[in-house]
Amino acid sequence: HAATELTPEQAAALKPYDRIVITGRFNAIGDAVSAVSRRADEEGAASFYVVDTSEFGNSGNWRVVADVYKA
């Protein structure tokens, strides 16, 4: 099962156990969220919340930071 994305309210009520950072070329924010979901799932997380997204220069590469939560 894939890790689910939390709302800001849900994330605020929970304590993350880790923070992950992924970088890559994403065509849309949805693609980045899917990549975070896969990584969170690999780490055994039940859910995640994207904290920050930023573009690296003009290369089209993105850096996505997310907190991950157990259950």
Rank of each mutant, 00 (worst) to 15 (best):
S47K: 05
Y69C: 03
D18Q: 12
I29N: 04
T7G: 06
G24Y: 02
K15A: 09
V21E: 07
A3D: 01
S59K: 11
G30T: 13
A28L: 09
Y69W: 00
R38K: 13
A11P: 02
E43G: 07
T23E: 13
T7Y: 04
Y17N: 04
N61E: 15
P16H: 03
R19I: 10
F48Y: 08
P8T: 13
A32S: 04
V33T: 07
G57R: 06
Y69L: 02
R39W: 11
Y49E: 01
W62Q: 04
H1K: 09
D41W: 15
T7A: 07
A12S: 10
T53M: 15
A71M: 12
A32D: 02
V65T: 09
Q10L: 08
A12C: 12
W62M: 10
V65F: 05
P16M: 03
D52R: 06
R39A: 11
S47V: 04
A45E: 01
G57C: 07
S34K: 14
R25S: 10
A28Y: 09
E5W: 07
V51Q: 03
S59T: 13
V65Q: 03
V36F: 00
S34G: 09
P16V: 03
S54I: 15
A3F: 05
T23L: 11
T23D: 06
E9V: 08
T4E: 09
V68A: 01
A13G: 12
P8D: 09
T53N: 06
G60R: 04
I22T: 01
E42W: 10
V68N: 00
Y69S: 03
G57D: 13
D41S: 15
V50W: 06
Y17E: 01
G44W: 05
I22E: 00
E42T: 07
L14N: 08
A28R: 10
A40E: 04
Y49D: 01
E42H: 09
R39G: 01
T53V: 15
A66M: 07
D67N: 10
S47F: 15
A66E: 02
G60K: 05
S34T: 11
Y69A: 03
S54Y: 15
A32I: 14
I22Y: 00
D67E: 09
A40M: 04
E9K: 09
A35P: 02
S54Q: 15
P8V: 09
A3I: 11
S37V: 08
A13R: 14
A40G: 02
A46H: 15
S37D: 02
N27D: 12
K70G: 10
A40P: 01
